[in-house]
Amino acid sequence: MTNNEGLSSASFKVSGEVVSVHVSMKLEIKDSPGQLVAALTPISEYGGNIIAVIHQREPETSSDTLGVQIVLEIEHERLDTLVATLKRQGVNILRLGEERMLHRQSVIMIGHLIHTDIGDTIDRIDRTGFAEVAELNVQMPGISEPSTALITIKATTRSEMDRALDLLRSVATEKGLLIVEPLEEAER
């Protein structure tokens, strides 16, 4: 579970809809102060979530440049704009890694979430290896009253998302929790 993503990234969009991509890119930047920050700034400006920044000083690159590998998640439709912006700022993109589509789905969960071990509920999704709980927003009105959570699941394919939601439904049934799912648009 990552907790560095804001609530704004939660979405009730149809589970089949691709809302973000997981992408790695290798950048060549000048090896001088401030250059790395300058390269990273557009990523956050376009709402990207930086997962890893790996510096590598490779023998074939000239001494005044630095190779940096960045792994990020960004809304699919914003990726092209980000790439164009980076190029315009003089950042050399040596390689744009393979994109991995990310599906996100939020559902509302109601019940005794804490007392039915919310850690276990999350683990059960995370342990699948193909899906993870990306976000959790829990509202607890008072002791012994049912709490309510917005839970966002992330998976790489539609069918994996469906399997993760099936799993969440069965965990909810087992723990006596109520799940409120978004209404999918009718298939046209």
Partner: peptide
């Protein structure tokens, strides 16, 4: 079984 919080969480998403 619905709570006011559930409607509020949905409302946060314009739902």
């Amino acid at each position: 079984g619905l709570t006011v919080d559930a409607l509020r969480l949905a409302a946060d998403q314009d739902c």
